[in-house]
Design a binder for these strands. Structure first.
Length: 486
RNA sequence: GCGUCGGUGGUCUAGGGGUAUGACUUGGGCCUUCCAAGCCUACUGCCCGGGUUCAAAUCCCGGUCGACGCACCA
C-alpha cells in the first residue's frame, strides 16, 4: 500500500473509467464529438452521490435554498450579465510571432500583425456561448422576430439565481444574508476542449450564491468555528503560504470573512467526499485573470498526477456586480432595505455576492484519480478505487462461495434483503471468488458479502472489507448496521 | 483554431497491397469451502468518406477522434 501512488500510471484512470462504465465519449458510434462525455451506469451513480453530498453540505448544513432555473435564456440576460459583450468577435493569430488578437474596428483579418507585421490567420470565435432561437420566426417580420428570439445556453448557472433575486429575497422575508444553490448543466463552446473531463463543452456546475449586506462582509456569524483551519494558500502576487483562515483574513490576503469562510468550507467539502488535503491548495487569481464580474477570486486546485495543479472550484467575491447590472438593464430594483447592528438607520443596499462555484465533472475526475491505487496482493496486482463508502457507486456485492443452487438462491435473497433496506447491492456469481473481489475492488465497492454453507445453518455471512481485505462474520440482519457504522 | 504524431475485438497489442496475431476481459460449461488458479467452449475488431489498384486495414487525399506543443479558457 505504501508505494501505491508511485505505481499509478498516467492515463490509466480514463481507461478504467471507460472500461468499467463510469465515463464514455459521447456520440461514439457517429465518430464522437470533442468536449462531450456521457456518464455510464457507475459514473452516473458516483456523480449523483457527489451531488447528494453537496446538497447535504450546503442545503442542509448551511441552510441554503436550492432552486432550478432554466438552462436557456434570452439574449437580454447575457447582455446584462456581460457575457455577450464579445459576441461574434473573431480572434486572429499571427503566423509569424504567434501573438493573439481580437478582431475589432482597428484590426481585421486583412491587416498585418501589429506586433511584427506577420500574416494573420483566423483562430476562432471568442464568445463561447451556444446560440439558439426561442420560438418560431416566419413571415415578413422574420428578421425582426429573429432578433427578438435570440437565446443562449447558459455558460454558468449563476444568472438563474440573480435574475430571480427579488423573488428570492421576498421568499426570505427581505432578510440578508441569503444563500441560494443550484446544480445543473452549463455550456461553453470551447475552442479546444481537451483532457477528458477537464474542459468540456457541456458540464455540470454546482453553485452557491451567498447574498450579504456589504457592511457585514467582515462579520460572518460562524467565522469562529472555522478561523483556526490552516490552508495552503497561493497569493496572486508572492509565494505560497500556510496560514490559518484568521491570519489570512486579518492580514488582508483574503479580502473578508465571508469570502474566507467559504474558501474554508470548499476545502471541508472536498475532504469530506474523499479528496486528500495534501492534494489541495487555494490559489488567488491575479488581477489579469479575474472574470469580468469578480473582485477577488480563490480557486481550489487539485494536484493531479496527470495534469498537475488544476482548478476544481472557484470562490469569487462578485461584489454587487450582478445585481447592479440586472437592476440597470431590467429596471427592477435589486436593493434590500435592511438594518445592520450598530448602524443607526435602516438603509437600502445592493447585496454583495460570494460565490463558491464547483465544477462537478472535474471533481469527479479528481476523485477517480486520487482514489485509484495499484497494489500487490501475493503474486497478483489489484486495482482498487478507495471511495468513501457514502459515495461509492455500489455499496455491497453478494457472492455465493460456490456455484451451487442453494448458495446462489441464498445470495440472491440477501441482495433483495439489502435492496429492501435501501442498500445498493449487486449479485455476482461468475468466475472464482477472487476474481469477483477484484472486479468489485476496481469499481470501488466497499463491501463484499459471501454466502457459504454455514450461512444456511447460522444465518451469518462473511463481509470482506475492500481496503483491508479483512473478513468478519455478521448475521444477515446486522449487515446494514455493520455497513452503516463504518 | 494552427502544428506534430497517432487510431487494429470490451481492453492492450502483432502485422501490414490478397479481409488479421497474441494476451487479458466477457458469456456458457467442468472443477473449486474465500482474494484475477486450471481445463473446455463461445462472442467480438482494422475510425469515417473519397481516390489509386484486379485487390486497400495497409498507399494517397479529406474528415473525425485522441495525445502533445502554441493559442484560448467569464
Amino acid at each position: 500500500m505504501s508505494s501505491a501512488k508511485e505505481d499509478r500510471k498516467e492515463g490509466e484512470v480514463v481507461e478504467l473509467a471507460r472500461r468499467r462504465g463510469f465515463l464514455w465519449p459521447a456520440f461514439e458510434i457517429y465518430g464522437g464529438a470533442a468536449g462531450f462525455y456521457d456518464y455510464g451506469p457507475l459514473g452516473a451513480l458516483l456523480k449523483r452521490h457527489i451531488e447528494t453530498e453537496w446538497r447535504r453540505f450546503y442545503g442542509i448544513g448551511e441552510g441554503f435554498y436550492e432552486i432550478e432555473a432554466t438552462t436557456i435564456a434570452p439574449k437580454d440576460v447575457f447582455e446584462a450579465s456581460g457575457h455577450l459583450k464579445s459576441f461574434a468577435d473573431l480572434a486572429v493569430v499571427c503566423k509569424n510571432c504567434k501573438s493573439f488578437f481580437r478582431v475589432d474596428d482597428e484590426l481585421n483579418i486583412n491587416k498585418k500583425c501589429p506586433g511584427c507585421g506577420g500574416e494573420l490567420v483566423e483562430a476562432g470565435e471568442l464568445n463561447l456561448m451556444f446560440q439558439t432561437r426561442i420560438g418560431v420566426s416566419k413571415g415578413e417580420s422574420a428578421e425582426r422576430d429573429q432578433k427578438k428570439s435570440e437565446g443562449y445556453l447558459r455558460p454558468e448557472t449563476a444568472q438563474g439565481i440573480f435574475i430571480n433575486f427579488q423573488r428570492l429575497i421576498r421568499f426570505n422575508r427581505d432578510k440578508l444574508p441569503l444563500g441560494v444553490i443550484q446544480i445543473g448543466k452549463a455550456y461553453r463552446n470551447e475552442i479546444s476542449p481537451r483532457k477528458s473531463l477537464i474542459r468540456l463543452r457541456e458540464f455540470t456546475m454546482a453553485e452557491a450564491e451567498v447574498f450579504v449586506d456589504p457592511r457585514e462582509k467582515n462579520r460572518h456569524p460562524k467565522f469562529d468555528t472555522v478561523k483556526d483551519i490552516v490552508m495552503k494558500l497561493v497569493p496572486g502576487e508572492g509565494a505560497e503560504v500556510e496560514k490559518s483562515l484568521e491570519e489570512a483574513v486579518r492580514s488582508g490576503l483574503i479580502a473578508n470573512e465571508y469570502l474566507g469562510y467559504h474558501v474554508v468550507k470548499v476545502g471541508e467539502f472536498l475532504e469530506r467526499i474523499g479528496i486528500p488535503k495534501d492534494r489541495l491548495q487555494f490559489r488567488q487569481h491575479r488581477k489579469d485573470e479575474m472574470a469580468h464580474y469578480a473582485r477577488d477570486c480563490w480557486d481550489a486546485e487539485f494536484l493531479s498526477d496527470r495534469y498537475g495543479w488544476m482548478e476544481i472550484v472557484g470562490v469569487a467575491d462578485r461584489g454587487d456586480y450582478d445585481l447592479s447590472v440586472h437592476a440597470a438593464f431590467s429596471k427592477v430594483d435589486m436593493s434590500v432595505h435592511t438594518e445592520v447592528e450598530g448602524e443607526a438607520a435602516a438603509e437600502k443596499v445592493v447585496p454583495h455576492v460570494i460565490e463558491p462555484s464547483f465544477g462537478i465533472d472535474r471533481i469527479f475526475y479528481a476523485l477517480l484519480e486520487s482514489s485509484l491505487y495499484n497494489e500487490q496482493v501475493g503474486k497478483e496486482k489489484r486495482k482498487v478505487l478507495r471511495f468513501k463508502s457514502e459515495i461509492a457507486p455500489i455499496k455491497a456485492a453478494v457472492f455465493p462461495l460456490l456455484n451451487r443452487d442453494v448458495l446462489k438462491e441464498k445470495a440472491k435473497a440477501v441482495v433483495q434483503i439489502l435492496r429492501d433496506e435501501s442498500v445498493f447491492a449487486e449479485y455476482d456469481g461468475s468466475g472464482s471468488i477472487g476474481r469477483r473481489y477484484r472486479r468489485q475492488d476496481e469499481i470501488g465497492t466497499p463491501y463484499c458479502i459471501t454466502i457459504d454453507y454455514e450461512t444456511l445453518e447460522d444465518g451469518a455471512v462473511t463481509i470482506r472489507e475492500r481496503d483491508t481485505m479483512k473478513q468478519v462474520r455478521v448475521p444477515i440482519a446486522d449487515i446494514k448496521g455493520f455497513i452503516a457504522e463504518k
